[in-house]
């Protein structure tokens, strides 16, 4: 990697020589991927607002379990952050624990979301029907799909952790996984507030 980074060195003779842009290509690519996911949800939530403004909009209560799920996903972000700190401090035992907790909370979130859909069905809000309901399922569903990919990432990370491949010198997987995970929980909080305020 060290020789690789040297190519990255950029010097602008017009000014002071610039510091090398040391972003790792994979991390950089992850950020760009996040941008494209943001655009998908930006498009869908704008579509939601445009469609809602046209009237004929079914009003229903958001499943109350979504409040709970929001708490769960926020906690999972916290435990992810602890895992990150323990990895930096080379505290392997706590690292394992915190990563495992994150995975467990992730599964709890998935369970809660599916339960939330059950509540919607009980209220008579179906995927097929008034677009208000359909949007609810599409937004939560598409988020869940991304969250599944995040969980897979966390499990892979967990495997790395158990094979002692994550420590203060090997932070790449940890950093990428935590970036993605924080993004996913942030995305849910955005969607939750959005749906709460635009009901």
């Amino acid at each position: 990697m060290s020789t690789h980074l040297s190519y990255v060195k950029i010097i602008d003779p017009n000014k002071e020589p610039d510091a090398p842009l040391s972003m790792h290509p994979q991390k950089f690519a992850l950020w760009l991927f996040i941008v494209s996911v943001v655009m998908i949800f930006a498009a869908l939530t704008s579509a939601y607002i445009v469609r809602q403004a046209e009237g004929d909009w079914l009003v229903f209560n958001m499943p109350s379990i979504f409040w709970f799920n929001t708490l769960v996903v926020a906690l999972s972000s916290v435990s992810m952050h602890f895992a990150y700190i323990y990895a930096k401090k080379d505290n392997q035992n706590k690292l394992k624990f915190a990563t495992a907790i994150t995975a467990v909370l992730g599964f709890a979130f998935i369970y809660g979301q599916v339960k939330g859909w059950g509540d919607l069905v009980d209220q008579g809000v179906y995927f097929v029907g008034n677009p208000a309901g359909s949007f609810m399922y599409v937004l939560t569903g598409l988020h869940l799909v991304h969250l599944l990919s995040g969980i897979i990432f966390v499990i892979v990370l967990l495997a790395f952790v158990f094979y002692n491949k994550v420590n203060s010198n090997k932070m790449l997987n940890m950093e990428m996984c935590s970036t993605y995970w924080h993004f996913l929980s942030g995305l849910w909080i955005y969607l939750f507030l959005f749906l709460l305020l635009n009901n």
């Binding site: 190519y7 990255v8 060195k9 950029i10 003779p13 290509p25 950089f28 690519a29 760009l32 991927f33």
Partner: peptide, 19 residues
């Protein structure tokens, strides 16, 4: 596209500033 952007930003040779 992600690849093109990452390459252009991170992998220019020495002296090749954006201008």
């Amino acid at each position: 596209g992600i690849n093109y952007i990452a390459t252009i930003i991170n992998m220019r040779t020495k002296g090749l500033s954006f201008n």
